[in-house]
Each structure stands twice: as C-alpha cells, then as structure tokens.
C-alpha cells in the first residue's frame, strides 16, 4: 500500500520531501521517549526542531503576503513545538502547560483566519477553564513527583510507525490537486451568508448559529445539561463508594 502511495506520487513531491521531516521527527521522538536512563534530551530537541524546520522547507507554501506568512509560520512553529513538548514531557503538570501553549498558538491561527470570537472562546474555555480544572484534578490526586507510568510509554514503536504513516498519508492527501467537482461545488445553503459589507463577524457568526444551526444549538445545550448532571451523579456515587 505504501509502495503504491509512493509510486503514484505526483510530480510536485518526491519521496524524500515527504519522508525527511517525518523521519527526523521519529528519531527525535525515539530519543526523547527512551527509557529514563537512555533519554537524550538535547539531541532529541535538535531532531524535533529539525523536523519542524524541514517540514517548513519541504511542505510549506508561501502566499506572497509577507506579514501573513511570517505570522502564520510563527504560530504554526510554536504550535508544533509546544505539541512535541507536551508529548515528550514526563510530568503531567508540565504537559498541561505545554498544552495551554498549543491552545494559545492555535488561537493565534484562528485569529489569522478571521475567527476572532472562536479564538477568544477557545482561550476562555481551554486555557481558562479546562487547564485550571486539570491542575485542580492533579492536585486533588496528590501527584507528588513522577510515577512509573508517566515515564514508561505504551508500545512507542507501534505508535510511532502508525503515526508516521498516518502523517505521510495525510500530507500526501493534502497535496493532491483538488478534484474539479468538489472545487466547483459551492452549495450556498447558508441563509446567513456574509455580505461584503459585513464587518462585524461576531454578528454574522451569531446569525449563522441561530439561523442555520438552531436545532444543533439546542441539542448542544441539552448535551451540556446532561453532562452537568452526569458529572454530579458520578462524583456523588464515587464519593459514596470511597467512604
């Protein structure tokens, strides 16, 4: 399957261009995730950063707008680094902090795509609420120091192979030219399409939510309610059992 993947590759990309960043990433991860005595922090960091840089060189496309390119690259690089750090970090608290950084970088990307409200909401929900909750839970669980299970990984080889292959397949798929049919198909089902004069994106988003997706909004609200009750029930039950 993989061979056919490479064999059918389009002229825009050769196997090395696809493979080098992935290989670098794999090597870096292997170095970082080795057993505690063999862990090589600095070569691992170098490899991972190299992988990010290589990916930028081989995969990235420039739009021509310099400011946009620079900002996009910065956010993307920050995000990738933070995500790598989160996976490599052995302490859950630090992992959570790396995660917050990933969220921030993602929010920057959101902002650049004209989704100001989403980016604000994401920061509030994740960085504000979820990360705090995590820290709360971690403290509650009295995680003093690292545990065995934070350091030893589960089947890293299998995960790395499948992850690398998945990334290769995805990148390859993204680089394929879009079929004409799906390019042409732009069904304008949205009754709240933004007009060129629309500058208030939040108002338009609100219109889209409550005009196009009203039922889904209601369902989501019910889901939240159920989740609240479910949380309460489980918490009370487990407390009863613990006693």
């Amino acid at each position: 399957m993989l061979l056919t993947l490479f064999a059918q590759q389009s002229a825009t990309m050769n196997p090395w261009e696809l493979g080098i960043p992935i290989l670098l990433g794999v090597v870096g991860y292997m170095l970082a995730a080795a057993s505690p005595q063999r862990r090589q922090n600095i070569p691992a960091t170098v490899c991972l950063l190299g992988a990010i840089v290589a990916a930028w060189f081989t995969w990235w496309q420039l739009s021509g707008n310099v400011l946009e390119d620079v900002l996009f690259t910065c956010f993307a690089g920050l995000m990738a680094m933070a995500a790598c750090g989160m996976q490599v970090e052995t302490h859950p608290v630090y992992s959570a902090l790396w995660f917050a950084l990933v969220i921030l970088a993602t929010c920057g990307l959101f902002l650049m795509q004209g989704a100001a409200f989403i980016s604000a909401a994401t920061i509030i929900v994740y960085a504000g609420a979820i990360v705090v909750t995590f820290l709360f839970v971690i403290m509650l669980a009295r995680q003093t120091g690292k545990s065995t299970y934070d350091v030893r990984l589960m089947q890293p080889m299998l995960a790395m192979v499948s992850g690398g292959l998945l990334l290769a397949a995805l990148v390859y798929a993204i680089q394929q030219p879009v079929p004409v049919a799906s390019q042409a198909a732009a069904p304008s089902v949205n009754m709240s399409a933004p007009t060129p004069a629309d500058t208030n994106t939040l108002a338009v988003l609100g219109r889209s939510l409550f005009v196009d997706h009203l039922v889904a909004v209601e369902l989501a609200s019910v889901l939240l309610l159920v989740a609240i009750f479910g949380t309460l029930v489980i918490a009370l039950q487990s407390r009863g059992q613990a006693r």
């Binding site: 399957m1 993989l2 056919t4 993947l5 059918q8 589960m154 089947q155 299998l158 995960a159 499948s162 992850g163 292959l165 998945l166 397949a169 995805l170 390859y172 798929a173 394929q176 079929p179």
Partner: peptide, 22 residues
C-alpha cells in the same frame, strides 16, 4: 490504547485507500 492503535491504523489505511483510488 491497543484498541485506539487499531482505530488509527484503520484510519491510516482508509486515508491511503482514498488517496490511492483518487
């Protein structure tokens, strides 16, 4: 996680299949 690994392998194969068919 072993179940999840199977899921992701399947996802990967599906992606490869879609790209290849295209």
């Amino acid at each position: 996680q072993s179940y999840a690994a199977m899921m992701f392998l399947g996802l990967m194969l599906l992606t490869v299949y879609l790209v290849w068919v295209e």
